[in-house]
Design a binder for these strands. Structure first.
Length: 282
DNA sequence: ATGTTTGTTCCGAT
DNA sequence: CATCGGAACAAACA
């Protein structure tokens, strides 16, 4: 659920709220996946100041200074929620952080319905290893479309599969990838080997634009409401979806096709995103 | 009730 | 040996 725009919104808000707070107490309520292990996590984190909250691809990084970082991956149903101390504990809470500044306290709940996410304690070196796993982000001003093209062409799969591979390009998930392909007018099943540099440029630009739009709209909240910001508020990008979850092409009103590509539900316009049209362009 | 659902990793096949 | 596709992970909903 949490793709780049959602993680970006959460990490920004969290940084604004709790930067320079101290972690007063940590409660772990389940056998959630915590690395290296639960006891080490509690011991290492307790009493540490939060120097900054940042983001690496779809990971939230809570920097504690002293060469220590907490990496949070929300996967599909993870949430970070701020509630008043006397509010009811949210469903599926696994971890509670009690934070304190000179003048204020905050309670942060980490929840995850399906428990696909994980929490990793990392030193500087491990954080670098994590960063190195990821391809460039389309929203990075330094990212190079020509490099993107090379990465695409090094794969032998569908373009949809390739852009969901975070080592090729990071930040896209199924929803934004689907809309990015529509905006670039590229059929999701186009073999990467058939991508022209012009198609790659278009796709890179579309991916950048759709992710920036998602950030502007503070992410997308689907019917299941699994993504909300740290205050429990929904995003609005779902109101701007081009083809994801839609019936008809917003461009030509043709009935959209739906099929599994790489195991993921994929919507596309058979007319606007037509393989043979692309070959003509090439 | 069986089939779906957002992300990632791992295993078997190619 | 490297790479790719698909299953698996867990839970809720239709």
């Amino acid at each position: 659920m949490a793709e780049l725009p959602e993680v970006h919104t959460i990490s920004n808000d969290l940084n604004n709220l709790v930067k320079d707070y101290t972690i007063d107490d940590v409660k772990v309520l389940s056998n959630y996946r915590i690395l290296p292990d639960k006891d080490t996590f509690i011991k290492q984190v307790k009493g540490k100041p939060i120097t900054q909250v940042t983001r690496v691809a779809k990971n939230i990084i809570i920097e504690l200074g002293d060469n220590l970082n907490i990496g949070l991956h929300l996967a599909m149903t993870g949430q970070i929620l701020v509630r008043n101390g006397n509010d009811k504990q949210p469903n599926w809470t696994h971890i509670i952080l009690l934070l304190r500044s000179n003048t204020d306290t905050q309670t942060i709940y980490y929840t995850d319905m399906r428990m696909f996410g994980k929490i990793t304690l990392m030193d500087k070196e491990q954080l670098q290893v994590l960063k190195d796993k990821y391809g460039p982000e389309p929203i990075d001003p330094n990212a190079d479309p020509a490099d993107f093209y090379e990465r695409i062409r090094s794969k032998r799969t569908s373009i949809k599969n390739a852009i969901l591979n975070q080592a090729v390009i990071s930040g896209l998930g199924n929803i934004y990838a689907t809309d990015a392909l529509f905006l670039a007018r590229i059929h999701p099943e186009t073999p990467t080997q058939k991508m022209s540099s012009d198609m790659a440029n278009r796709l890179f630009e579309s991916a950048k634009n759709i992710l920036l739009e998602g950030i502007e709209h503070r992410g997308s909240t689907l019917a299941d409401k699994m993504y909300v910001d740290i205050y429990g508020k929904e995003g609005t990008q779902q109101n701007y979806f081009r083809v994801y979850g839609k019936q008809d092409c917003p461009n030509c009103a043709t009935k959209l096709e739906f099929k599994k590509v790489g195991g993921r539900g994929t919507y596309f316009c058979p007319k606007c995103q037509n393989l043979s049209v692309q070959e003509q362009l090439f």
